[in-house]
Design a binder for these strands. Structure first.
Lengths: 334, 334
DNA sequence: TTGTAAGCGTTATCAC
DNA sequence: GTGATAACGCTTACAA
């Protein structure tokens, strides 16, 4: 920048004024400065700028690089963030780098706000951070403190799955649990509540599982060892796919003998050859709400924490159909 | 940091010495400074540090958030980068943000080196950047200038696929082209060369395609409209899956009537229910080589550009088998 | 071992 | 409309 100033024959601050596009410089100066900048290949220094101005306009987003759902969410944040005049700083968690380390790194870069996708931190560990910068959590249903939360109504999602299956005539609907993964708890409770509402409380069956194909396959083994239900809701797509495979290998036809529903409507579910009925979350909207929530706290005055749970949508594909007629004696059973 | 200095009663530079862990401070001072730092919740400021020291130890990586292959590659870079004492700055390209914009942003943060995955920039657009910082390109086979290149030997990959199919007895082996996508050119030429080497030059058949499921499905239609080959090599997994689906829908059995090979050995290929024979790239090693290449240029003296092409490995799964015996007249045909 | 002075590239403040 | 000066938080160089 000093180069430009010397080149044009003006002072450094004046160059700064021109390059920032604020007013306080004559058209003539402006033109000559911009010309020189282009000629000299000037590139603004974000470090110096952030340091001096105390305003980086950086938003940090913490997410897991290995969760396609979160990656997609982040991708959808970019246009929103840019439009609001901010930059997105990616804080990727990996098996060797937890959320805490990532958040710390983002704050060292003076992020002004933080979007935490799939929060894993216990409330009190997040507390000191929340006092420093606005935080929005994406994908957690309940939290403490002045934190905005944007989530998916996971309980409603599994409820929709149960409704769909019940409408098809299913009664024995099992659920493959997601353990401690993000959203798993709500998905489980939504299943339980919906089953009860359909008068199927006695049919509730929660099988231990997880968010991976292996765990889905294991759940399938559990189900195969006992009396098979007529339908299964898995707590995410991957476990549904693992389960699907084990079932097919065991000679169970889908959807004739067993209907299967996944959760996430990921690319995997849409894959021809899988064609999985699944619960879709509105990812673009979650991205937009999350970004707006942080920016509002930054640009506007403080306000009460906002907790949003978006309604998901069941996407019906080829893995669900009415159950086979039960054997006669079943009629009498209650 | 000034706070700590005041709190402990020493000068600021001394605090800096302690916090950086270099020597030049007494044990006693060290202890008291660290204590105060913990107490005051001190967090180093990367901006100020980078600005003053002219050494950010940042490595920028440019990659596409929507390409799982690249995301996986980036994930594998983290441990390598950390071990070498650097930080990875993620520069994600999205549909709305091209490589040029992303690189520019990374350089504003004073990245000392750049890893460009799936380079899209024409040589001359990269030139001015290469003069500023060390650059390594990942996934391009030929480039100009003093740029390190770490890639996959894509031509060898398709060659392995042809070898495998030829060994099984296939002769009419078609290839679904990848158009202008990264690596596609080499995959095509590897196919051509391998076919010729097997004396199958007359059987060469390149069908227009791409890297998406839709393009794979379209290629399937092209193939179905004419005489079906006994095997198809797709230029990536997704197009193989699209093709697979169209074939199955058309009543073609796989692998009995048609063997299918993909490329990338992505998660999709490994999916039970897909179980696609595919060409695997050694992602962890590519990550390691790429990072080391940049860091070497940074830490060591300049040296000639290094061009590495890693040998891929064919992973044989369920979509390939010997062809059905041809009808008798075929014997006489040449 | 410790302190002092200076400066990294930029912007804020206030004069002119 | 323009320019001088100081300051952001930290590290380097050198002196004590």
């Amino acid at each position: 920048m000093a180069d430009i100033a010397r080149h044009v024959g003006v002072s450094r601050p004046l160059v700064s004024i021109v390059l920032r596009g604020v007013d306080g410089a004559s058209e003539e100066t402006r033109r000559r400065v911009l010309e020189a900048a282009a000629e000299l290949g000037y590139r603004p220094d974000s470090l110096a700028r952030g340091l001096r101005s105390n305003r980086t306009r950086n938003l940090g987003v913490v997410f897991a690089l290995r969760r396609p759902f979160e990656v997609e969410l982040v991708e959808d944040m970019f246009p929103v963030v840019e439009e609001l005049g901010y930059h997105l700083l990616l804080g990727a968690t990996t098996p060797g780098r937890g959320q805490e380390a990532v958040i710390d790194e983002l704050l060292r870069y003076r992020c002004e706000g933080l979007i935490v996708v799939g929060p894993e931190l216990h409330g009190h560990r997040l507390d000191p951070i929340v006092e420093e910068v606005p935080v929005v959590e994406v994908g957690r249903s309940v939290t403490r403190g002045p934190v905005d939360v944007v989530g998916n109504d996971d309980a409603l999602g599994t409820r929709q799955a149960v409704d769909h299956l019940a409408a098809l005539g299913h009664r024995r609907i099992a659920f493959v649990d997601g353990g401690a993964n993000p959203g798993a708890e709500d998905r489980r409770s939504g299943y339980r509540a919906a089953m009860a509402d359909h008068g199927l409380a006695r049919e509730i069956r929660v099988v231990p599982g997880g968010y991976t194909e292996d765990e889905g396959a294991k759940a399938a083994q559990t189900l195969l060892a006992e009396r098979l239900p007529t339908a299964v809701i898995a707590s995410n797509d991957l476990s549904a796919i693992g389960l699907l495979d084990s079932m097919l290998r065991a000679g169970v036809t889908v959807p004739e003998e067993l209907s299967v529903v996944g959760y996430d409507d990921s690319r995997f579910a849409r894959l021809p050859g899988i064609d999985l009925t699944s619960v879709r979350q509105d990812i673009p909207q979650m991205a937009q709400l999350a970004v707006h929530a942080v920016v509002e706290r930054l640009d506007l005055s403080p306000r009460a924490p906002k907790k949003v749970a978006l309604p998901p949508q069941l996407v019906i594909r080829g893995t669900t159909s009415p159950p086979r007629p039960e054997r006669a004696p079943e009629l009498g059973a209650r």
